Simulated scan of single mutants.
Amino acid sequence: MGYDKNGNITSLTRKNSGGSNRESLGYTYAGNRLSRIPVPTTESVTTAALVTTLTAI
């Protein structure tokens, strides 16, 4: 896991049960506010889109 000077997570590597890397995620911030969240595809999603999606569920 990587952090920036404000203590925000900048990178995270998730592992599977066998200990191999499952996915490596990178987080993007605008100032000290999270602006993009990685998803396990080739695309990323904005926090506004995620909130809209979660609200609709």
Rank of each mutant, 00 (worst) to 15 (best):
T53M: 12
T13Y: 05
S35C: 06
L34Q: 00
T53Q: 13
L12I: 06
L54Q: 08
K5H: 06
D4R: 03
T41H: 12
E23S: 14
Y3I: 07
E23P: 01
M1Y: 09
S24A: 14
P40F: 05
V39H: 05
R33C: 02
I57A: 12
T10K: 09
R33A: 05
K15D: 05
S44W: 00
S24W: 12
S11R: 13
V45G: 03
Y3M: 14
R22Y: 07
N16Y: 01
K5Y: 09
L25K: 04
G18I: 00
G7D: 06
M1W: 11
V45S: 01
A56Q: 08
V45N: 00
V51Y: 07
L34P: 00
T55N: 09
N8Y: 07
T52C: 03
L25Y: 10
K15H: 12
N8M: 11
P40E: 07
T47M: 03
S11Q: 15
R22M: 06
V51T: 15
T42F: 11
A56N: 11
M1K: 14
T52S: 10
Y3V: 11
I57S: 07
P38Y: 02
R22D: 04
E23K: 12
T53A: 14
I9H: 03
L25R: 04
S20Q: 10
T46F: 00
S44R: 03
A49D: 15
T53V: 08
I57K: 12
G7A: 11
L54V: 10
P38Q: 04
R22V: 02
R14E: 15
A49R: 15
S20E: 13
T52G: 05
G2T: 12
I9T: 11
T42Y: 13
K5L: 12
E43F: 07
T28H: 03
N6Y: 13
T42I: 15
Y27N: 00
R33H: 06
T41C: 10
E43G: 06
E43I: 07
K15L: 15
K15Q: 11
T53R: 15
T53P: 00
L50R: 01
N21F: 02
S17G: 09
V51S: 08
V39L: 09
R33T: 02
L54H: 04
S20P: 03
P40Q: 10
S17I: 06
G18E: 04
S35F: 00
Y27M: 04
V51G: 03
T55S: 10
E43L: 10
L50K: 02
T55P: 01
L34H: 00
A48C: 04
N21E: 11
Y3S: 07
